[in-house]
Each structure stands twice: as structure tokens, then as C-alpha cells.
């Protein structure tokens, strides 16, 4: 890519080459169509320019032609649609093994929190070859997380989670942009995605010191008093949260919902919106009491309860990083 006149963006994710291939196909079809129209208009305009004594030859039209140039372009466009939808489906379906990273957007910065506890602002470090899933929300207005080198973009909304996943392929520094207009410093709300080789990434991870997100969540879970009701040993007043994540939940009104990120989030902020069957609506609402970051930690904790292998590993690994802590404190 030329530094002064870039004509093509870097390809740095598994998705980039796929999108580019489709883009090239579209460019070719569009190029041929444009050339044909330009050529036809030019040739016809010159060939049939007015000559004295030669009158225009009136033609009413042709139903065959009309059907032809309605149906054939439609099928060509159908290939655009199908190919585009296939790519989109992949972009919107995160693999189950993806490592989660929490993103909170606010005017005008990106606050990023790794599941291991590292915090970053306007920078996101990721290793190559690993599926990363961003779980994003906004504290104020709508933003949009855009990485041109990955060909990916997702709006980030207040009051709910949206997700974006990718697998980076080429180490380097790539632009991160906010793509949804968000006020004064919209154009300054950018940063870098730093893609590293896995070994470099491991070094970077070890460099900082932090408490894993789920561990923070567990602390909050007890300090906010959640653990007095949500417990497994005795019959609590609230449902036991172990193993509920991503599973169907039977609601009081007969509906069944999947306990995904947005469900857990809503159940903390507004518990009466969806009441689990067999329980009373007694839980207080935490809207305005917990911040978006605290909420992310709580969600990460609830999730960790459903991942016996990974979840406990994450918590057991926590002490492994703690030797670093005394040095900082």
C-alpha cells in the first residue's frame, strides 16, 4: 500500500480477503456494465446523429428485451446478494471458542477491558490466529467500531450489547475509527489495533498486572449483595446462576429466552422485565447503580460460572498473575 496514495486497504484479518474478493467481483461486473452503457450511448449518439433527409425510425419497444434486461440483471444481482449474505453471516456468527474482550465507548474514547483484566484506552492488542469477540456498549450516544484493515464495523449502542468478532492474520498497527457521528471529536475518536504474534502477545499480557474481569465481577457480586439470594447451596430467593449462560430460560409469562449477554445485562439493570419462572419479582433494579464497566465484570462473572473448565481456570489462573501486584502497590 502506497503511503501517499493508498488505493487498497491492508488485509489483516481472515475476513478481509473474502470481502476483497467479493468487492473485486462487484467491481468487474459494475465496470463491464458501466463500460457497456458508456459505449452504447457514445456509439449510438454518433452513429445516429441527425443527417439531413434521414428521419428517425420509430420503434415502440420490445417486451422480450424488457423482460430480458429486467430478469438477467436480477439474477446477476442475486449472486451479489447470496455471496454478500454468506460473508455477512460469517461476520455475525462468532465462533464458540472466541476470546472475549469488553469495549465501552464514550465521547470520545474507546475503553477496552480484556477478560484477563488488562485495561486499554484507544488501543486494542490482539494476537494473530485467535478468534476475538468484542462485546461492546456505549455510555452515551451511538458510536461505531470500525477497523478498515479487517473490513469490519459494528455500531455501539447505549443500553445494550452489540458484538463483533475477527481473527487477525498479519501483525502490525491498524487504524481504529469511530464511524458513527458522535459529536465534537468524532474524528478524533480513533486509535490503533495492534496485532501481535502470539508469543509477543503473551509477553505483552504478562507485562501488565491486573485482576481478571470475572474475578472483579465475583467481588462485585458479593459486595452488591447478589450472592445472598443467587446461590446454589441453599434454596435462594433468586435463581442459581451456575450454568445458565447461553441456555434457554423459562420465564414467568410462559416465554423462553436465551440467557445471552443482553439478557444478563437487562436482568441486572431491570430485573422485572423478564422474570424467571418460579421466582418472585423481588430483586432491586441496578440501573444507575452500576457503571458499564462494573456491569461488564458482572456479566463476565456470570458467564464464568457456566464455563467449568475455562471459567475456573480463569479464576485459578488469577493468583498466577498476582505476584506482580505487590510490585505495583
Amino acid at each position: 500500500m502506497s503511503k501517499y496514495l493508498p488505493l487498497w486497504p491492508d488485509q489483516a484479518s481472515t475476513m478481509a480477503s473474502q470481502v476483497d474478493l467479493l468487492y473485486i467481483y462487484l467491481l468487474l461486473v459494475a465496470g463491464v456494465m458501466t463500460a457497456l452503457i458508456f459505449l452504447a450511448v457514445t456509439v449510438l449518439a454518433i452513429k445516429y446523429r441527425r443527417r439531413p433527409g434521414v428521419a428517425a425510425h420509430q420503434i415502440e419497444g420490445s417486451t422480450i428485451l424488457e423482460l430480458g434486461w429486467s430478469i438477467i440483471p436480477f439474477f446477476v444481482m442475486l449472486t451479489f446478494f447470496i455471496w454478500g449474505a454468506v460473508i455477512f453471516f460469517q461476520e455475525r456468527t462468532p465462533p464458540a471458542d472466541a476470546t472475549e474482550v469488553y469495549v465501552v465507548a464514550k465521547q470520545w474514547m474507546w475503553k477496552i477491558e480484556h477478560i484477563e483484566g488488562q485495561h486499554e484506552i484507544n488501543e486494542l492488542h490482539v494476537p494473530t490466529g485467535q478468534n476475538i469477540k468484542l462485546i461492546m456498549t456505549s455510555q452515551d450516544v451511538i458510536h461505531s467500531f470500525y477497523i478498515p484493515a479487517f473490513r469490519l464495523k459494528q455500531d455501539v449502542l447505549p443500553g445494550r450489547y452489540t458484538t463483533l468478532w475477527f481473527k487477525a492474520t498479519v501483525p502490525g498497527r491498524y487504524h481504529l475509527f469511530c464511524a458513527e457521528y458522535c459529536g465534537t471529536m468524532h474524528s478524533g475518536m480513533g486509535g490503533d489495533i495492534v496485532v501481535m504474534k502470539p508469543e509477543d502477545y503473551a509477553l505483552w499480557m504478562a507485562g501488565g498486572s491486573s485482576t481478571p474481569l470475572a474475578e472483579n465481577g465475583r467481588a462485585l457480586f458479593s459486595s452488591l449483595g447478589c450472592s445472598t439470594c443467587h446461590r446454589s447451596d441453599v434454596k435462594g430467593r433468586g435463581p442459581d446462576l451456575a450454568g445458565i449462560y447461553d441456555k434457554p430460560v423459562q420465564l414467568d409469562d410462559g416465554r423462553t429466552v436465551i440467557a445471552d449477554d443482553n439478557y444478563v445485562r437487562e436482568s441486572i439493570l431491570d430485573p422485572t422485565a423478564k422474570i424467571v419462572s418460579g421466582f418472585k419479582p423481588v430483586m432491586p433494579a441496578f440501573q444507575g447503580i452500576v457503571t458499564d464497566e462494573q456491569l461488564n465484570a458482572l456479566v463476565a462473572y456470570v458467564k464464568s460460572l457456566s464455563q467449568p473448565a475455562q471459567g475456573s481456570a480463569a479464576l485459578q489462573n488469577a493468583p498466577a498473575t498476582s505476584p506482580g501486584q505487590p510490585e505495583v502497590q
Binding site: D270, T272, A273, I275, P281, A285, Q287
Partner: peptide, 8 residues
């Protein structure tokens, strides 16, 4: 009697 979120 179901309590509701006053915001909603």
C-alpha cells in the same frame, strides 16, 4: 402484583 421499572 408485579413491580415494574418506573423508567419504562
Amino acid at each position: 402484583q408485579i413491580p415494574v421499572n418506573p423508567k419504562e
